[in-house]
């Protein structure tokens, strides 16, 4: 399937920018199941600084925000050809050893709730990791009900379990923490998803991948209870959302004059994912 993606994020800063950088992970790369036909990032109110592949083999673009401006728009858009590989991404590549994906991160710290969630799921000597991960998907889906607005980007897996609600990111974090509790390497993936009848979306998508001996990395989208197919585009991966976040920024703005009405930063996202005819 050929997907056309257009993803624009606009930041409205409370005051004129003094200095600011944004680290973008907004470029999908070719992998099993996808090839990139065309892709581009355009900035308004920001300038390209440098680009490189990070430790997770994600393509990173660093941009600096133009001092004095208050509004910045980052637009990533292009065409990606996808194939249904039943979620299989394949062998581990890159130079980070697999154990790296079995360790806690701030967002996926394993606590008693994760322990309770995986109770009884132990794989055993001849256990089937794949079946375990599928079963885990169901458990997470039941334990964290998909709900908009109940969490934010800083919500941890344990906190999401406590709340019992969350978005795809929270479900993925719970899945990752739980898989690691079972001794299975797991990682977070950010990307895009084609949704039938909803070309215009509010946010990108996020899901998890677990490493299964013999098969390699396999995707699990808890929110939709499936393994990613040709409606999915992988953009970046890492131990948790923070490693794979589409945008990580550090901005300082000019302090508003005394007595000025305090304002807070705001952002708006315009995202469209559509299937298009191949030429």
């Amino acid at each position: 399937m050929r997907l056309a993606i257009d993803h624009a994020t606009t930041y409205h800063f409370a005051g004129p920018i003094r200095r600011g950088l944004q680290r973008l992970r907004l470029t999908p790369l070719a992998s099993r199941g996808q090839s990139v036909i065309a892709w581009d990032i355009e900035c308004d109110g920001a300038a390209f600084e440098c680009g490189y592949d990070d430790e997770y083999a994600n393509r990173v673009t660093l941009v600096s925000l133009t001092p004095g401006t208050r509004e910045v728009t980052i637009r990533a858009h292009g065409l990606v050809e996808t194939r249904d590989e039943a979620g299989v991404v394949g062998r581990h590549s890159g130079y980070l050893p697999l154990w790296h994906f079995t360790r806690d991160t701030p967002l996926t710290v394993r606590g008693e709730r994760i322990a309770a969630l995986v109770a009884g799921l132990d794989i055993g000597a001849s256990g089937d990791q794949l079946a375990t991960l599928h079963a885990l998907t169901e458990r997470v889906r039941a334990a964290v009900v998909y709900t908009l607005g109940a969490s934010d980007v800083a919500t941890t897996a344990e906190a999401a379990l406590l709340a019992g609600r969350g978005v795809c990111q929270d479900q993925a974090h719970v899945f990752i923490a739980a898989a690691r509790a079972l001794g299975i390497p797991a990682r977070y993936v950010s990307g895009y998803l084609l949704i039938d009848g909803r070309a215009e979306q509010e946010a990108g998508h996020g899901w998890a991948e677990g490493f299964v001996d013999g098969l390699g990395w396999i995707g699990f989208d808890v929110a939709n209870a499936i393994c990613p197919d040709d409606r999915y585009v992988r953009v970046a991966a890492g131990r948790d959302y923070r490693d794979a976040a589409p945008v990580k920024g550090l901005t300082s703005t000019v302090t508003p004059a005394e007595g000025a009405e305090p304002q807070s930063d705001a952002l708006s996202i315009a995202l469209s994912v559509q299937a298009v005819a191949t030429a």
Binding site: L21, E49, C50, D54, L62
Partner: peptide
């Protein structure tokens, strides 16, 4: 993230050569 002793983005420039 609270460090004021370093340079934001130096690791990006570093990896980019």
């Amino acid at each position: 993230p609270d460090s004021v002793l370093g340079v934001a983005g130096i690791m990006d420039v570093y990896r980019a050569g």
